[in-house]
Amino acid sequence: MSCAQTILDYGLRSLGIGERLLPRSDFTLCQQVTLIGSGLIWNLYFAFFALLFGFFLATGLALAKTSTNPWLRKPADGFIFLFRGSPLFIQFFLAYEALVLLPRAGVEIFGLTVATSWLAKAWAGALIVLTLNTAAYSAQNFHGALMSVPKGDIEAAEAYGMTGWTKFRRVLWPTMLRLAWPSYTNEAIFLFHATTLVFFSGFPAFQQRGDSLYYASYFAGQTFNPFVAYPIVAGYFILCTLALIGLFGIVNRRLNRHLPGAARRIRYRPQVIR
């Protein structure tokens, strides 16, 4: 079987498209690279959506954490402590245990039946956990950045007559992002790496549709040789991490474009990596 054929058969296997049976014998390097690459789709999916949703949640949490109202501040503090203080590994386990407890038939709310069984599936359940997790870590970053927004900036905004939402959107928020961005980049890298835990310890793989580590451990289990499949995953991850750093660097340059001399390369001040 040629390598092009293998890519056609297994390129989208992780989504359930293509050949149903995974290779069983005569494993080629091409098969391993293709299938593990196909699993990478899930890693990218989890990372992208968790970062997207987590970003907005984190902004809200960071604001709640700075609030003087204890009804807002205390829950935000508790949430951040809980998710930053425990291993993701255990969060996945507990979340899965909790999500499968939801009734299969769905929950009745005001006479409407809301289906809940999809929540226990990896694509939804693991995404929720990852989102909450990254939100907690990023909120801590954002909070630190909010606290270091220069006083003069805020005073200047007030002098222009900006209040509330306008002040936040046009002054506080951009400055916060600019300050938090290097550590937020680190957080994004960590989150991307954490997506490998989804099928490894948390959620069951459905119809052998898993992430890159799932397929790598499948191959390692079939060939009994850990020295091919795992380095392939490592290679993919190094490439993706580099791409991610590049992408965040572009955003960083945009955030800093008004500052003279700030268009230089992003420097990682790893203060606030997890």
Partner: peptide
Amino acid sequence: AMVRGVPDIIFFLFVPIA
């Protein structure tokens, strides 16, 4: 750069045996 680019879990799966 290398070690930071690889998830630690994958690193642990083959490096100790190696």
